[in-house]
Structures are given as structure tokens and as C-alpha cells.
Design a protein around this nucleic acid. Structure first.
Lengths: 221, 221
DNA sequence: TAAAAGATTTAGGTGAGACTAAAACAGTGC
DNA sequence: GCACTGTTTTAGTCTCACCTAAATCTTTTA
């Protein structure tokens, strides 16, 4: 039961976009995958009427993963995040580049290689962006922290996760040393739009509004 | 100028089968690639009439790489062999399994990753099977040694290379410790067929005729 | 509540990469 | 030098993964 890269990518996209047991629209998927909605509809329909189906599909509602689909998606995400951490840790690939590399590698590594990387990293729980790595048996830790946009004013917070898709943001944060684990204080918020001023490491930084949903923080007590 | 995996594979196959500037037949390529001759003809024709052509093709004669094609093929082979060595050395993948893994990975690693692996291995010259790794600028060392079938009787020889495609042979040789660098003596040859008896490490081993062309040795003076 | 706006699907098309069956060609043997 | 044999190409078909344009459905709004 080996899947094409296209299928693996669409499963991953559904997993990422699905909230609870809600449906994911074809246009949201098309957006995420950089394809046209009609193309996604087509793929999803083929996927849904395959024998060993992984997704449920209702016309005009959208798609969602069934339990088997979730398991498969988590396997792919495990590959992705293990590879990211391996590349960062062992080969020194900067954290803003590991995503693109993992995006291609995740589809072609064997289970054996997965196991060897995991062992070399001593069964890690988090990737370089702070995202949890699913276990081999398909468990995934709950998300920690809240989006930075919801952090209270003047609070001291610790970065728990930075979403890995936006290489520019990662480069910017990385240059500042603002990795998961770093602590900073929320010093101000623009009245409209909501971009944020923070104090980190004796520097005042400004985070644009579009960056905030990509950053999760835990408010320190 | 990024090539599909199918195209990369066919270029590699032509490189492997091409002797000097001779033509490689479509059926030989089909054999090597596990496809039908008609499929190969089709692919080659498309390849040959592409603008930036990498292969010459003459109907009923076959295909061969032009200088640009050779350069591209060597880049892919560099990827393949670097990956093999990296997996063996760094992750402990046994030498009979690195080939299959590299076969998939070679098409998806970035130049940056190639460089990082090469640096981690201190710019290696040979892969785990003793095959030369092309340099980044497309040079490749000459083959060392002769096929074991041509080794003289009672000679002491040193293994220089074992072709990586036959996992069973690699497993057998590996179990004996017979890696590149190992020395043994040719003790006997079967009159017909030509399978070989050797003495290595105080053991008498028997190598079937089909194994001999896959093993290259340097005769010790 | 009906029409407009927006989202989604259907219909039809393309190119890559494979296949089979049939036709064309090349090399050999008489 | 011609027929036979085996190789190679041509012709036609299939699936996958995308696309555009047109039709259909859903939701919003007047």
C-alpha cells in the first residue's frame, strides 16, 4: 500500500487544515497545495472512491480524514519532522531551510531509515520549530501554548512553536536568536492591525501582524 | 533545468551501459530499467528532440550521452554514491541496503545538502562498494582493478570494487567481511563455468560464476 | 424570497510515463 | 541475394496529475 507523493501531500494538507471532525473545503486545500480547486476535487474524488479509502468526501461540503487516513497522515508528518530535526542537528541545515528539504525527502525514506534517524536523535519529541513529532504508533502530543496574538500585554512569554512554512519569518527570528525556548516580554500592540512590540535579549523588536498566528507562546506565571 | 526522476534514471542507465562512444540499445536500457523497449524508445525520442538535448539518438542504433548528458549523469551518480557512503558511515545502514535507499534519495536532495554530506565525510573519493564518487565539477576517477574472473590462479588480490546492485551478493560478502580493501588468494577455478575458490581470512570460500563480473580486484605484486 | 455572488463540480483537454500489438527494419544463413 | 529471425519502432491505449471554461449548487443580501 504505497501512495504517490501527490496523495501523501493531499493527506497531509487535509490533516493540517482539519479542525476536529469538520470538513475541509476543496478551495482551502487548493490554496494550501498551490493547485486549482477543480484539480483537488478530482483527486479527492478518486481518493474517496478507492477501495482502501482514507478520506470521507461529501460534495459541496469538502473532505476529511477517517481514522486510517489520520494514521497515514501522521506517519508522513513523522517523517517530515524527524527529517527536519535530523538535518538541523546533524548536518547543520539552518531552520529556515529544513522544511523545503523535508518536503521532498519525507516521501522517499524507508521505515528503516526513519528508525535509524530517530535512534540517532534519541527518539525526539519536537522538531526544530517546536512542533511535536508523532510517535511510530501514531500518537501526537497536544499543541502547547497559544498564538502570540492572544498573549496579554506586558506578559513574559516563552516561545513554544513557530510554524515552519514561512522561511522569511524563520530567517528573521533566527537572526535574533528567537528560537523555541526563548523568553521575551510583550511591550506594546498597535491599536489597529495588531502588530506587536516585544523586548527580547535587551533588544526591542517589532513583529508584523501576519507573523503572529505563526508563533505560539506559553505565558509565564 | 530540473529533470524528472524518470529522465534522471534513464541518463544514469545510459551512462552505466555506454562503452566509450558506442551506442546503447533501447532493449539494453529497457532491461536495466525494468521497462519495455517500446517505452524506452518513446522516452529517448522525447529526450532527444528536447531543446537542451542531453542524448544523441539514431533509430535502430540506440542512444548515447553527449558531453552535457555525461555531466548531468555524473551529478546524479555523485548524489547516489555520496548518499550511499553517508548512510553507511553515519547511520550504519548495511552496505547491501544503501543502494535501494540512495536510488530514491538521489533525485530529491538539494545541492546544499550534497555539499553538507560531502563536507561531513571530508570529501570522500569512494563509496562503500569501492566505486569512485565523481567530483562536484564532473570528474570521475578511472576504474581500478580487473574483474575477478580475470585474476590469475594462485594470485593474491585485493578487492577494489563490488558492484552495488546485487544485494544478495553484498550480504554474502559482507557476512564474510569481504569488503573493498580485503585481500584473498585465488585457490582454484572450476573447469567449466568458471566459478572460483578463494582463501580469505583462513576460510575457503566459493564464488559462483555470476558473482565474478561484479567483483573487481587488484592483483598484488 | 428571489436574484446575485461566490464556491464547487463537471466536462473536456494536456503531457508524462508507462503498456500491448502490429509493422518495419537489420543481420544472418543458406 | 533472399528469406528468416530477432530487434526496434510505430500506433494506439491507459492512468495520473494537473489545467481551463462552463455549469451547478450554496449562501448571502436586498
Amino acid at each position: 500500500m504505497s501512495l504517490s507523493q501527490s496523495v501523501e501531500n493531499i493527506l497531509k494538507a487535509i490533516y493540517d487544515l482539519q479542525l476536529g471532525d469538520q470538513w475541509v473545503s476543496t478551495s482551502a486545500l487548493a490554496d494550501r497545495l498551490g493547485q486549482k480547486p477543480a484539480s483537488v476535487t478530482n483527486m479527492i474524488q478518486r481518493l474517496a472512491r478507492a477501495k482502501a479509502s482514507l478520506v470521507d468526501y461529501t460534495p459541496y461540503r469538502g473532505a476529511r480524514l477517517n481514522p486510517t487516513g489520520v494514521k497515514v497522515a501522521l506517519e508522513i508528518i513523522r517523517h517530515h519532522r524527524l527529517i527536519e530535526l535530523y538535518l538541523a542537528q546533524t548536518l547543520g541545515v539552518p531552520w529556515d531551510r529544513v522544511h523545503d528539504e523535508a518536503e521532498r525527502l519525507e516521501h522517499v525514506i524507508s521505515e528503516d531509515l526513519e528508525d535509524r534517524m530517530a535512534a540517532a536523535l534519541a527518539d525526539p519529541r519536537l522538531d526544530p520549530h517546536g512542533s511535536p513529532i508523532p510517535t511510530k504508533d501514531g500518537q501526537i502530543a497536544a499543541v502547547v501554548g497559544v498564538p502570540l496574538s492572544e498573549a496579554p500585554m506586558r506578559a513574559t512569554v516563552r516561545v513554544t512553536e513557530v510554524r515552519d512554512e514561512d522561511a522569511n519569518l524563520l530567517r528573521y527570528l533566527g537572526a535574533m536568536g528567537l528560537y523555541p525556548g526563548a523568553e521575551f516580554t510583550v511591550t506594546g500592540r498597535e491599536p489597529f492591525g495588531g502588530s506587536l512590540h516585544i523586548r527580547f535579549n535587551d533588544q526591542d523588536l517589532h513583529l508584523g501582524e501576519e507573523a503572529l498566528p505563526h508563533i505560539r507562546v506559553a505565558v509565564q506565571t
